[in-house]
Amino acid sequence: MTTLLPPTLLQWLLVTALLVATVMLVALVTQRAVRHRRERRRAELDERLRPLVLEASIAEDDEVDALLARVRALDGEEREHVGRTVSSMLRGITGEAADRLRALADASGLAPRVIAAARHRDPVVRADVAEALGLLAPEGALALLLELADDASADVRTVAIRALGAFDEPASVDRVVAALAVDSGIPTSVAASALLQQGSAVGDRVRRALEDDDPGVRRGAARVAGLLQASGSGDALARLVADEHESVRLAAMRSLERMPVRDAVPALRAAALDGGTIGEAAARALIAMPGRWTADALAQIGAEAEPGVRRAAGLPRAAASA
């Protein structure tokens, strides 16, 4: 007979297993019960406080103070709920209503709390702060965001740069442009989107960035230039079509699709004939330009370029024409 284990040990094993399973079951049920209770509590608070927040969003100038006083008179849990509701609503709206809600966030104590937590030990909290600063834009938010944009945690830096998109002051624009650099540790799409969000205020800065030494900055600026229709950036974009870095060339070509520049045609033609991803991007830029500029280039592409590039240039397949 194969026995091997003393029966008492087996019993212990089994009992332990059942105990563990029971504890897990209890944890499962408790977790859900607690969550449901919290949800119910929030729903209750919401029913009472939501009308107040909504009323504030349409308040006339002379009604604001009274509303803010009402918020200040609420207890801690209620004010916290007001802060939460305001944050959620601010994601959807701008203008006067947003200004009113921001005042409410201030009165609820949310904005002061956010500012106070800007130097919290936990990077997750600091990232949340950066996010909230962009949304609530309280006094001093810009200075704090510039500080958080140099945070030790890459996560915090990224959120701060994204939040800076809501501020078009020169210091903010400069910081966002610097974040385009290759070794900034910030995703280029985040920095470039922030720059784009800063809008027409950045035109001059983008033009200069097209000549920057850092390829990341050139790439980001090249990508944004076309979307912003940054006037006077055409020559620089045409030059960047032949940049030493592939990603810069691609970005310039994407912008040229929206902002045609005649001087770029020869470089685009050469790139298209070289083929590959770059060649396809070049072909797409070419067909977005007026036909009288590009007729020769397209004819040559039709005769010599690889099929992928011909497709990008909208040229028919040989079999179809034959």
């Binding site: 996560d155 998109g165 799409s189 989107s193």
Partner: peptide
């Protein structure tokens, strides 16, 4: 989940620079 507040998916959805 702790990072869910600041993941920035809305910004990504709104950006024409997304891949």
């Amino acid at each position: 989940l702790r990072r869910s507040e600041h993941r920035g998916e809305d910004a990504m959805a709104a950006s024409p620079l997304s891949l």
